[in-house]
Amino acid sequence: MMDVNGSNEPIGDPAGGVGTRRFALPSGTKLQEYTLVGVIVALIVVGAILKPDTFPTTANFRAILTQSSVVGVLAIGMTLVIATAGIDLSVGSVVAAAGIAGGLVYETGAAVFVLAALGFGLLLGGVNAAAIAYGKVVPFVATLAMLAIGRGLALQMSDKKPISLLGADGIRWFGTGKVLGQPVSVVIFVVVTIAGWLTLNRTAFGRHVVSVGGNREAARIAGVPVRRTIFTVYCLSGLLAGVATVLLCGRLASASPVSGQLLELDAIGATVIGGTSLAGGRATITGTFMGVIVFGLIFNLLTQLNLATEWQQIVKGVIILAAVLVQRPERI
């Protein structure tokens, strides 16, 4: 998989303000992806040296991918959102609320659980979408409000108690089952990633997403359905939060109203270190995928080394900062 952008100048950007530095440096996205590959290799090498028996094993890499699947699915949605120069702070809360929505009806079957979770995620994403695309609320504020609303709904609907899914084997299959010898959640993560890549790089909608983020006015003049595009990305982000909750609840064997706190920051962080520009107009699913893997490797390695979590926070923060610095080729 390759990046979208780099060569993909925002459609209809008449000003062309970013053109000059291109001849001097590799594009921010490219440079960042090479750097990320290096970071991933370095983390694996360090892990293999420090924990030769337990780190470089098939089972452990499978575990890392499984653990990354929840943030990974969210980050794919986040990439599309950020590509439009937006942000979705609500995904962690939506994960909790969608899980509870599924949990309330889980006894009627795994399919109903999944439908309810996806449906509720889509609904809350739709509220974000309507507020931002048609209500003209700034994405940061609209989704910050949904962060509070989603968490409140999760607590209210669950009566502040976790819903146990211990007996629900159909739901637990999403967290613990296997397809073609691989964990179901990893397969779903990979499928969502590929679908996200195709959407962004091979469809008119994907081009609209990038152009809306690159230069909204120019996109509008060029005939891009700006509102509909923005509306759709927030709906997708909500829907993917529903997918993420299915993966999480399946593994956790319970739907908890306190789940998912700060997941949005991991999803945003993974997207940003992947090379997607917070300013919009430049997005890469491949980069996001690698960003998610970097976070997964860091968590796994530092936990295996039994380092305190404050080190994980410091390492994550430093990597995000470094990534944004690499990404900052445009004039200030």
Binding site: T57, A63, L248, L252, S254, Q304
Partner: peptide, 13 residues
């Protein structure tokens, strides 16, 4: 609970 799951998964590895 969700963090308990995640942390324990890594520790089990």
């Amino acid at each position: 609970p969700d963090l308990g799951l995640q942390v324990m998964e890594a520790i089990l590895q």
